[in-house]
Write a protein that binds this DNA or RNA. Structure first.
Lengths: 301, 301
DNA sequence: CGTCTTCCTAACCTGACGGCATGGACGTCG
DNA sequence: CGACGTCCATGCCGTCAGGTTAGGAAGACG
């Protein structure tokens, strides 16, 4: 019988949580989707795995059997993937476009010295995935920004902090300022990405600085160019890392440093069972950024 | 990293065959589909698994590693499924509508005596699947007709043979006959199902009796009612098991016994690792049919 | 040098999956 | 005892992945 291994991870999560809603939240999917997936699994097996009630889900006898057998299967598969990648001497590294920069090549070079013969396969993650492929285990290690959903389940090391700016249309009343306190812009509509959820959303909308005020959404965008156009068009503003002013400069968009919001952190994160090569890569990240910080004073971003 | 286990079986088949086309044939999918799936797997892994050439596919080093790890993973999953179903004391049995009949309930009753507390979950297979769910391992055991695709890879026991008829519109020139030699109808257009392929196709079109003559397809139908309408409408004729005359009788369709074609066999088939309960079911099938044949003379179908 | 084999690509279609909005059952609390 | 909260199920819809057929390039072979 064939199933997607994702479905097995869903089942394992539901079994652990004993609660569909909670499991859905943990897996970053909607609860109806989990309901459907689980029914699908049960129907394929022809076996009821949980008894449902308004107080939660409880494993049936057969469910217990499956719950005991699934984790080793998943572990076996994950190990197979990791060994295969190791045999190819390829380290795949996910990154958010906003988290990689000119230091990245130094990290790759350092890794090349530690692991001669290996190739680093840098994969830019789509905007919609703040985990840069880590959550789906498409990559064993990634360069990304904190906070991100599922942060607790991975190894994480912060590389450096970076202040934040507000992106404004060049015609905006605050466009000429050297710096702006966040409260002066917190009532403006904001541009958001569809995937902005949970702690990730709270961070980039600076929810903690809004005193519970409603967020007005000016536009929802999928890609960076849409994002910039939305800003330029006056549909709203957005918080971005300072380095965005380098990588996304446009005449009709200005970036003004913002005070009163926490800085954004760039980090390297890895899967629990990422393997030795990934650990080496993490070490290289830490060494390169330390020498940059303490050395010639060059700043990332 | 998440994949459908079907993809792993595809990979294993390609690795064994060393040839996409042959593997596609064995898996009953088209070769382009395999190409795409394999590329998908490689891209998810970020690793090239085969070197391609016009002479076939050859595993890379990394491919060998994966090929060694995948079978245990699949075996683990299959065992988990089988144990889970066993724990639920449910035996799921697939059947073709044309292969089950009034003896089936006797088999189920006999099984109930051998395995008290167990439930038999009879699942009618869609017309498009001559393996009745066996090939996809949706069921561990099935009642079906020989030949069927992939027959060699399963356990098979023939239960009984049944002569074949030709289904004709009641207005057909041969509709009144008591019996018809196959060569008298072999030039008529035939009604076929989309899934008619390979040996299954050869059997139901009686290819071996056509002396290499082209088959004219009168219509392609998805479901039994369409099939009957196509016959009644004069779009073509078709070979069917004699028992169809009971289960699909219609005033505008007649069934005439055909000579010169091999009989159709009803069989029980099971997965190699189907388990004890399935083995018991097979035994019950054999006992019930033997007693029916040698006993009171009642005929199946 | 044609022919066959083998794999890749393109275009199209269908079915499955995920999300949102909503409904129904059950337990809890004022 | 009624209102509310929690939890799971269902219906609808848009998107995407997987399948199929058709067509093409590259190498092996007689």
């Amino acid at each position: 019988m064939d199933v997607d291994t994702r479905l097995l991870r869903y089942f394992a999560a539901i079994a652990e949580e004993g609660n569909l809603t909670r499991a859905a939240h943990r897996l970053f999917v909607s609860q109806p989707s989990l309901t459907k997936q689980l029914k699908h699994l049960e129907s394929q097996l022809g076996v009821r795995l949980f008894t449902r009630s308004s107080t939660g889900m409880k494993l049936t006898e057969a469910g217990h059997v499956l719950a005991a057998r699934v984790p080793p299967v998943l572990a076996g598969w994950d190990a197979a993937v990791s060994e295969t990648r190791g045999a190819a001497r390829v380290l795949r590294v996910g990154f958010l476009s906003s988290a990689a920069n000119d230091a990245t090549q130094d990290v790759v070079a350092a890794f090349g010295k530690v692991r001669p013969g290996w190739r680093v396969d840098l994969r830019q993650a789509p905007w919609s995935d703040p985990t840069a492929g880590l959550a789906a285990a498409e990559v064993p290690v990634a360069l990304l920004r904190l906070p991100f959903p599922g942060e607790e389940t991975f190894g994480v090391r912060t590389l450096f902090s970076e202040s934040r700016c507000v992106a404004l249309p060049s015609t905006h009343r605050l466009a000429g300022r050297d710096s702006v306190p966040f409260r002066e812009v917190r009532d403006e509509p904001v541009i958001v990405a569809p995937a902005l959820k949970g702690a990730w959303r709270d961070h980039w909308l600076a929810m903690s600085e809004r005193d519970g005020r409603e967020v007005r959404v000016g536009a929802v965008v999928e890609r960076p160019d849409e994002f910039l156009s939305a800003i330029a068009g006056g549909y709203g503003i957005a918080l971005v890392p300072s380095s965005a002013s380098h990588f996304h400069s446009r005449p009709d968009v200005v970036y003004v440093p913002v005070t009163g919001v926490s800085p954004s952190e760039v980090a390297v994160a890895w899967l629990p069972d990422a393997g030795e090569a990934a650990a080496d890569f993490v070490r290289c990240c830490l060494e390169v950024t330390r020498s940059r910080r303490t050395g010639c004073g060059t700043r990332w971003g």
